[in-house]
């Protein structure tokens, strides 16, 4: 029971302290790897999150399933659904605060730190996925394509799987 509550708390915390869907990744990785899941599991969840319908932050549900089956998926869904709804009372009660300079600075600080944390997390995932030449080339192409937004994320996952089937056997 205690462990169940801990898992729920992990998913709630990761959503509550992140600004943006994928921004929860560094927090989740810090709490779940290696105790509950490996980096390979994180990669699977990220891929499914991109291929499945809905917000890409739903990768968290895939990760929850990998960690603890349907119960884990439910905890992840609860965390991902509840945390952003804090905006409902916030916009009603503290709208002036939300539009203040210091709150804008707070969001900016968290966003910038998240960018740095995501860079570190991405580098860790790359290192754990293999460093053969074709894999590093795939990383470089994906970074460029993602920054320019030229190709749909789901298509990039399919391309990655095809390249893996061609070179990874």
């Amino acid at each position: 029971m205690w462990e169940q509550l801990q898992l729920l708390a992990i998913f709630l915390k990761s959503s509550a302290l992140a600004v943006g869907g994928l921004a929860s990744l560094p927090l989740l990785r810090a709490d779940l790897v290696p105790r509950y899941v490996t980096d390979a599991g994180i990669v699977q969840a990220l891929a499914i999150g991109r291929l499945a319908p809905g917000p890409n932050g739903l990768y968290i549900v895939s990760l929850g399933y990998i960690v603890a089956g349907w119960t884990g998926a439910l905890y992840a869904l609860i965390g991902a659904s509840l945390a952003p709804l804090v905006m409902l009372p916030a916009t009603a009660l503290a709208r002036r605060w939300l539009l203040s300079a210091w709150f804008g600075g707070l969001v900016r600080g968290v966003s910038l730190a998240t960018a740095g944390l995501l860079l570190a997390t991405g580098a860790t995932i790359v290192a754990g996925s293999g460093t053969q030449i074709w894999q590093l080339a795939l990383v470089a192409v994906t970074v460029v394509v993602t920054v320019h937004g030229k190709l749909h994320p789901a298509a990039m996952i399919v391309v990655g799987a095809a390249v893996g089937l061609a070179f990874g056997r």
């Binding site: 293999g130 391309v159 990874g168």
Partner: peptide, 9 residues
Amino acid sequence: GLSGIGPVA
């Protein structure tokens, strides 16, 4: 397939 999806992720 995952060996190619990992670098993409």
